[in-house]
Simulated assay, not measured.
Amino acid sequence: MPVRRILCLLPVLLVAVVAAQHWSVLTEGFGHLRRAEWPWLVAAATATCLTWVAAAFTRQGAVMERLPRRRLLATQLAAGAANHLLPTGLGAGAVNLRFMTVCGVPLARSSAALALYLLAEAVSRVGMLAVLLVIFPDALEFGPLLPGGAVGPLLLGAGAVAVVAAGVLLLVRRLRTAVFSFLRTALGEARLVHTRPARALALWGGSLAFPALQAAGLVLVGLALGLPVPPAHMAVAYLAATVAVALVPTPGGLGSVEAALVVALVAAGGPVAVATAVVLAYRIITVWVPLVPGALTLGALVRMKVI
């Protein structure tokens, strides 16, 4: 079986399947783009491209070995495509894990670097949201959008999931041993990285720049379509929405991210129709347009045995 040749073509085939499933969304999104102001859209596309650079910096900062720069950057484009074809986070994680392993990083340390990247990105995103909410406390008003008594059950459900996870970890000895061993490796890798100022700067600078550039992309699309919401409030809405859907296991957040972004923009004061148009146009620029070149890059990297 020509396994590698099949793997080269598989991403493009999956893109076609996903596009066919969301054809109506694509059509509506491109319709909104035709009515937008193009200078703002070009700026949004530029911000999207810079997110791959920020991700490359963060990946390099999470590991001590020096990774090949061009291949690392190309891997982030390919990882973005894989992330939209598999349950959220798994595609990008698998691509980067394989890339670091091919570059000679042991599997245990590659996994630790991946965990460090995810931790840094999560801390930066939540921290940036917290800072903006302190500066703009009236940016979001979810009260009219949430049914009465909805917050309590949501918090109760989250607490129940945490208790079950902790119980499983305590009762299953083999799992507990594996988790603690991984944590020791991850903490050791984190200590090593932070002994190198250049690595620490790349890790935290890239992890801060990544969500900031994503939020900037949404703000620029909002300006292109005339969304009557202050830019800072749009940024808060984006960060709040992405934090809320971080645990939803859908490929690339397709569907869940759109819904959360619309709700967040409406909570920020935007009309429902314009907010929906902004979200569809934003997802076209950040997800659907890069999907084909990302899939082709993924296939090329598989063929070149980079991953």
Rank of each mutant, 00 (worst) to 15 (best):
I6D: 11
A259Y: 11
A82M: 11
A273F: 06
P228S: 04
L133F: 08
L220N: 05
R174H: 13
E258G: 01
L187T: 13
E121K: 14
L156W: 13
H32D: 04
G29C: 02
T101P: 10
Y117V: 12
V263W: 09
A216E: 04
A56P: 08
G299H: 01
L132E: 10
A43F: 03
R109I: 13
A44Q: 03
L291T: 05
A268E: 09
A113I: 06
T250M: 08
F30N: 09
R69D: 15
T101D: 11
K305W: 06
L223K: 07
W40C: 09
A62N: 09
Q21N: 12
P271N: 06
A56N: 04
A47C: 10
V248N: 05
V287L: 15
L227F: 03
W38K: 15
P251Q: 03
L155I: 13
A78G: 08
A160W: 12
R191M: 11
C49K: 12
P153R: 12
T195Q: 15
M128I: 12
A212Y: 06
R5F: 12
A202N: 01
A56R: 01
H233M: 03
A78E: 05
A165M: 15
G188D: 00
W38Y: 14
A82N: 06
V263C: 08
R199G: 07
A130M: 08
A200V: 07
L26M: 07
A120S: 10
R71C: 05
G80I: 03
A198D: 12
G61Y: 02
S110Y: 00
V292N: 03
A108S: 10
V236D: 07
G61Q: 07
L291R: 08
L33Y: 05
L133V: 08
A198W: 13
A74G: 13
T286E: 10
R5Q: 15
T242Q: 09
V123A: 13
V263I: 14
A113K: 02
L280Y: 01
L265H: 00
P228C: 03
H32S: 06
G299L: 00
A43S: 08
P137V: 11
A244H: 01
F142K: 11
A259E: 03
L10T: 12
G93I: 09
R5N: 10
E121P: 10
V243R: 00
V302F: 11
A79L: 04
A241Q: 04
V306L: 06
L129R: 09
A82V: 01
G270D: 00
V172M: 14
V279Q: 01
E28V: 13
G159S: 12
A186S: 04
P153W: 08
V263F: 07
A44D: 08
A20T: 05
T58H: 02
V219P: 05
A268D: 01
R35D: 12
L107A: 14
L7S: 10
L280Q: 06
L265Y: 03
G294E: 11
V63Y: 02
V102K: 12
V236S: 00
G253V: 02
V302C: 06
G206Y: 00
P68S: 06
P68W: 04
V95C: 13
L140V: 07
L175T: 10
Q60N: 10
R176S: 11
A54N: 07
I285H: 05
G127S: 02
A81D: 12
E141V: 14
V266D: 02
A240F: 06
L201E: 00
G93N: 05
A190I: 06
L107M: 14
R59Y: 15
G299K: 05
R303V: 07
R283E: 13
S207W: 03
L156Q: 15
V279D: 04
T101R: 15
